[in-house]
Amino acid sequence: MEVRTIKVFTTVDNINLHTQVVDMSMTYGQQFGPTYLDGADVTKIKPHNSHEGKTFYVLPNDDTLRVEAFEYYHTTDPSFLGRYMSALNHTKKWKYPQVNGLTSIKWADNNCYLATALLTLQQIELKFNPPALQDAYYRARAGEAANFCALILAYCNKTVGELGDVRETMSYLFQHANLDSCKRVLNVVCKTCGQQQTTLKGVEAVMYMGTLSYEQFKKGVQIPCTCGKQATKYLVQQESPFVMMSAPPAQYELKHGTFTCASEYTGNYQCGHYKHITSKETLYCIDGALLTKSSEYKGPITDVFYKENSYTTTIK
């Protein structure tokens, strides 16, 4: 009895394709271990004539594949690729409408935090270190965002349907971005203890939790000093293409032309909904596939993004 075979390709990165001759009487799992086709788990399936010449994702289970996976995804987590594939199996079914010149995501599976993050990423200057993220990001900007969303979920250790947080998501993504040249110098002034300067680099240099107003941050924000008295913390120097200011959701007025974009969060910790506000020729609110415009805006804002380049204080 002759062994019926077909020729397929296996890959971990969709760049390096490895030619395989597979036995049609055995499952993919018996031949390769966990195997995925377009995100779908085909591990328990036997090869079919229609699979001839198709590319299958496999887990990096030998040295060659491990090197290829690390170079593309910059992670050695053995569960990463499987999590990416199972997320992709959902995100490829989502709709990605162009809204006001940006790629958004039609609401499904509690994905409003991903839509808000995706919209924000198209408006701030950011370059990702893992080629996987950078490639998928370019495709997302062009309207094909399924891979990018699935990668975000995998890097953030999230599953489809789980509630997510924009600030946490951005923080994970910033860790995989090139923020080497970003720098922030802060000064804390206390009447009792004097003053202390701190220099922050990388992710810490672009994120701040405690106030939404970048102007206020430049002037000074009140913080408790270690001595128990009130101290003032203010920005001395900022070198970065953008800054992200966050605070627990509270009524906040966004003035046209003073910011790049913002995240609105309605609801409580267990259950809520994100919308995205962007400042173009007027203010726009993007909620999944829905767009509304207004000249002014007041609502429960939790993150505001500002364009920056270089700032030095005039406070002496």
Rank of each mutant, 00 (worst) to 15 (best):
E2R: 09
V3F: 13
T5V: 10
T5C: 14
I6V: 13
V8H: 00
T10Q: 08
T10K: 13
V12I: 15
H18V: 13
Q20T: 10
T27P: 13
G29K: 03
Q30P: 01
Q31V: 07
P34K: 12
P34F: 05
T35A: 08
Y36G: 01
L37P: 01
D38K: 10
D38E: 14
D38N: 11
G39A: 12
V42P: 00
T43V: 04
T43C: 10
I45E: 15
P47C: 02
P47D: 00
N49Q: 13
S50N: 11
S50M: 13
S50L: 10
H51S: 02
H51N: 05
T55D: 01
T55R: 10
L59D: 15
P60G: 08
N61L: 13
N61D: 09
D62H: 09
D63N: 08
D63Q: 02
L65K: 11
L65I: 10
L65R: 10
R66T: 12
R66C: 08
E68P: 06
A69T: 14
F70S: 15
E71I: 09
E71A: 13
Y72C: 10
H74R: 15
T75Y: 04
D77K: 04
S79W: 10
F80S: 01
G82R: 06
G82L: 13
Y84R: 03
Y84F: 12
M85Q: 07
S86V: 13
A87T: 05
L88Y: 13
H90R: 13
K92W: 04
W94T: 00
Y96S: 02
Q98M: 13
V99T: 11
G101Y: 04
G101N: 07
L102E: 02
T103G: 03
T103L: 02
S104H: 01
K106G: 13
K106H: 15
W107V: 09
W107A: 14
W107K: 13
A108Q: 11
D109S: 10
N110C: 05
Y113G: 04
L114W: 01
A115Q: 01
A115N: 08
A115L: 03
A115F: 00
A117Y: 01
A117C: 10
L119T: 01
L119W: 05
Q122D: 01
Q122W: 01
Q123R: 03
Q123N: 03
Q123V: 00
E125S: 08
E125F: 02
L126C: 11
L126G: 02
F128M: 02
N129A: 08
N129M: 08
P130V: 12
L133G: 00
D135R: 10
A136H: 10
Y137V: 04
Y137W: 15
Y137H: 07
Y137F: 12
R139H: 11
R139Q: 15
R139W: 08
R139F: 15
A140T: 07
R141N: 06
A142D: 14
A142Q: 11
E144D: 12
A145T: 02
A146L: 00
A146S: 13
A146W: 05
F148V: 02
C149N: 01
C149D: 00
A150H: 06
A150Y: 00
I152T: 15
I152W: 02
I152N: 01
I152F: 02
L153K: 01
L153R: 01
L153Y: 07
N157T: 08
G161Y: 03
E162M: 08
E162N: 05
G164W: 04
V166N: 11
R167F: 12
R167Q: 07
E168R: 07
E168Q: 11
T169Y: 00
Y172N: 15
Y172C: 07
Y172V: 10
Y172P: 02
L173K: 01
Q175L: 06
S181E: 13
S181P: 06
S181M: 10
C182T: 03
C182D: 01
K183S: 10
K183V: 09
V185Y: 06
L186C: 09
N187P: 04
V189H: 09
C190Y: 04
K191L: 06
C193W: 00
C193K: 03
G194C: 04
G194M: 02
Q195M: 14
Q195P: 11
Q195L: 12
Q195G: 11
Q196K: 14
Q197S: 12
T198P: 04
T199R: 10
T199E: 14
G202L: 02
V203Y: 12
E204M: 09
E204A: 12
M209S: 11
G210E: 04
S213E: 01
S213C: 08
E215G: 06
Q216G: 10
Q216Y: 03
F217L: 12
F217N: 04
K218T: 07
K218A: 04
G220M: 02
G220D: 04
G220I: 01
V221P: 02
V221G: 04
Q222S: 12
Q222R: 13
Q222E: 13
Q222K: 13
I223F: 09
C225R: 04
T226Q: 12
T226L: 13
K229R: 13
Q230C: 06
Y234N: 05
L235T: 03
L235A: 04
V236T: 08
Q237C: 12
Q237D: 05
E239H: 10
E239G: 03
E239T: 13
M244F: 04
M245E: 08
A247S: 11
P248K: 13
P248H: 11
P248L: 13
Y252S: 07
Y252C: 05
E253D: 04
K255T: 12
H256S: 09
T258V: 07
F259T: 05
T260Y: 09
C261H: 06
C261G: 09
A262R: 08
A262Q: 04
S263V: 15
S263I: 15
E264C: 10
Y265F: 13
N268Q: 14
N268V: 15
Y269W: 08
Q270R: 11
Q270Y: 10
G272K: 09
G272V: 09
H273Q: 04
H273F: 01
Y274H: 08
Y274E: 09
K275M: 04
K280L: 13
T282P: 06
I286G: 03
G288V: 01
G288M: 02
A289V: 07
L291M: 10
L291Y: 13
L291S: 11
L291I: 15
K293Y: 08
S294P: 11
S294L: 13
S295N: 13
E296Y: 15
K298H: 09
K298F: 09
T302A: 08
F305N: 04
K307Y: 11
N309H: 12
N309A: 13
S310E: 11
Y311D: 08
T313L: 13
T313S: 09
I315T: 15
